[in-house]
């Protein structure tokens, strides 16, 4: 018919490049990975020396739960993360706001943060032990330090991203400075701060293993370390799975908090 009428449809060239959400996809991805892994283990393609099978990992987790150690490990780690993250975040928010608002704090703070941020916190462990002992304090401090710097950077960039026009507006209505910080800058910086929270919560989990290297009887990190030292790879992977679950949970909670706090977007 195209030849008959001399008409051809205009080809469609749009579409694509618009990743959307598929609800089933994450579950399918996990299922596929685990199924493939179990298949490789069962067929001997993946020898137990190299990697335990998912079934063994589940057994190890079940064993851990049955012995009651699971709650001890998770409880100890959660409390360290909660304390360390909260302290690091509060301090980071304070310093980040100061750097976002005052020229002196910014000029002094940026080079100091740039110098201290890249230091691997694990390298400071011996010092932390000398200063703080081997009980909970150095473990919390390790996490708090790891969380502090990204929070500072995230916060002051978030403050920078608050439109200046809003601050000028507030000044034009004679809002006092504390009110400008509280009513304009803090909510305006909230998207950036929450993005930083996503990063720092992951950092807290990553540092958990380092934090629990020294003198920890319980904790997911110390459990993973011990399993590694004992070459109990099924328990090692079980511990890693616990960390992943913790990470997913925290990410889910943060997503909810974001949806609630940023409903205006």
């Amino acid at each position: 018919m195209a030849e008959e009428t001399g008409q051809t449809p205009v080809p469609f060239r749009g579409g694509g490049f618009q990743p959307g959400a598929r609800r089933w996809a994450p579950w399918a991805a996990f299922a596929a990975i685990i199924a493939g892994w179990q298949l490789a283990s069962s067929t001997g393609l993946l020898p137990p020396l190299i990697m335990p099978s998912p079934y063994e990992v589940v057994l190890a987790l079940g064993h851990l739960a049955a012995s009651g150690d699971l709650t001890e490990h998770v409880g100890a780690s959660l409390s360290r993360i909660a304390w360390g993250w909260s302290i690091g975040t509060l301090a980071g928010l304070g310093v980040g706001f100061a750097m976002g608002i005052w020229s002196l704090a910014r000029s002094a703070g940026i080079p100091v943060v740039a110098a201290l941020f890249p230091i691997p916190k694990i390298a400071l462990l011996p010092l932390l032990i000398l200063w703080l002992g081997i009980d909970e304090a150095p473990k919390i401090a390790t996490i708090a330090l790891g969380v502090f710097f990204p929070t500072v950077i995230g916060t002051y960039s978030a403050v920078d991203n608050v439109p200046r026009s809003l601050i000028r507006m507030a000044q034009s209505f004679n809002l006092p400075n504390p009110a400008i910080v509280w009513k304009v800058i803090l909510p305006g910086a909230m998207p950036g701060i929450l993005a930083a929270f996503r990063i720092t919560s992951s950092i807290a989990l990553i540092l958990l293993v380092a934090a629990e290297m020294i003198g920890a009887e319980f904790g997911i990190g110390s459990f993973i370390l011990a399993a590694g030292n004992l070459m109990q790879t099924d328990q090692l992977v079980a511990g890693v799975v616990l960390l992943s679950i913790l990470g997913l949970t925290i990410s889910f909670v943060l997503g909810r908090v974001e949806a609630w706090l940023l409903n205006w977007r």
Partner: peptide
């Protein structure tokens, strides 16, 4: 001395009434 801005300068997280209230709260 009060301004009306070209870009409106509204706080996006406050309701209409909340944006008006901002000028009065202090």
């Amino acid at each position: 001395f009060t301004y009306i801005f070209q870009d409106f300068a509204l706080l996006p997280w406050r309701s209409v009434a909340g944006n008006v209230a901002l000028a009065l709260e202090h």
